[in-house]
Write a protein that binds this DNA or RNA. Structure first.
Lengths: 189, 189
DNA sequence: TTGTAAAACTAACAATTGTTAGTTTAGTTT
DNA sequence: AAACTAAACTAACAATTGTTAGTTTTACAA
């Protein structure tokens, strides 16, 4: 019909519900009602509630880690790498705002997949930290504590999902440019 | 004993659990076990699970709004006002990291108190936005979209609860200074 | 028309949920 | 000693939870 499997449709709908109430507060009956079917029917397509969360979170977590791995190993200058990281966040968030919410808020409810998620997150932060270190050693970035830079930048990017859907049609380039300026050069004259 | 009512002790313990699993995933039996009593005994001190969330969230939400109201109406220069906002976030987060997590992640589960919470949040953002506008009109802040400045700053400050407890003993002044520099002047040379 | 596979259904389960009612314990005041 | 109070307890409830088993519907290919 729309090129999606029924399972994918379920996961997409689930992600939307997870964003508004959180994983734990969404029941299988809520999800089924949203799909227009009965709860038991969901189990023709998925094996458990937890599997849905795994699908939702791990797919997008892999995209992020794969992306920053490429950015770090590229030949770009540091500033370009930082801008590429920002652009990746804006683009993935604009494409998958609901999944981003689960990634941020519901990862602790992962069962089997939690270890893999934590590995992906650790690797992501490792690459990001290394880019920042390189920037400092090359004199492109100020000599501020790496962890402060990592935290303040990453937390803004990770929470774009709260903000981006509020704008109507998303002008990605405008957002990317604003964030580049704000995060890299600050807001003070 | 420790100057706290039994109800306050319950709310403090609850906030800690809410941070690690989210409000919906914490059962009254979980909370009771953490207090070393049975679930039914909790109801000698509180009237419902929801009341606990109300207590936890509204207390800290009021602190924030009251604080920024005073900052905005002060005679300080814009830069000092911005630094005062940052300092307030660092201090309240260092004092109440668990409550901050509920404020960020569990407000949608508020029942009776949700309207009051949303009013407090709106008022907070209003004052913050006005400080930013004033900064722009006085030429202290760059001519970047107000909403971008508001979002990127506020999201960093609101999520300090994730980061501050990771540090051992919290050197508040060091964190405040780093954030002042990072948020206001950026990370790029 | 018949066979097949996808996807829905009804009905029910065992466990867990927030909560209530009534009772007991322990410490303090009269 | 008697009364009072704070705070715990046991036992149970009605509702909701994720999930299973078995059955029926739908649509398309043979």
């Amino acid at each position: 019909m729309n090129g999606l499997t029924r399972k994918q449709e379920i996961c997409i709908t689930a992600a939307r519900l997870f964003k508004s109430k959180g994983y734990a507060a969404v029941t299988m009956r809520d999800l089924a009602a949203e799909m227009g079917i009965k709860a038991a029917s969901l189990y023709n397509h998925i094996s458990s509630k937890e599997e849905i969360l795994n699908e939702v979170i791990l797919a997008i977590a892999k995209s992020f880690t794969k992306g920053i791995r490429n950015i770090r190993s590229s030949e770009d200058k540091i500033t370009e790498k930082l801008q590429a990281v920002i652009a990746q966040h804006v683009n993935l968030t604009a494409d998958y705002p609901f999944e981003m919410a689960s990634l941020n808020n519901d990862w602790m409810h992962l069962g089997e997949g939690k270890k893999e998620y934590l590995n992906l997150r650790d690797e992501y932060e490792l690459h990001f930290r290394e880019i920042i270190k390189q920037g400092k050693s090359e004199g492109v970035l100020k000599n501020i504590d790496e962890e402060v830079i990592l935290f303040s930048t990453l937390v803004t990017l990770r929470n774009l999902y709260i903000w981006i859907p509020k704008k109507g049609v998303v002008d990605r380039d405008k957002i990317i440019n604003s964030l580049n300026q704000t995060l890299l050069q600050g807001i003070e004259i």
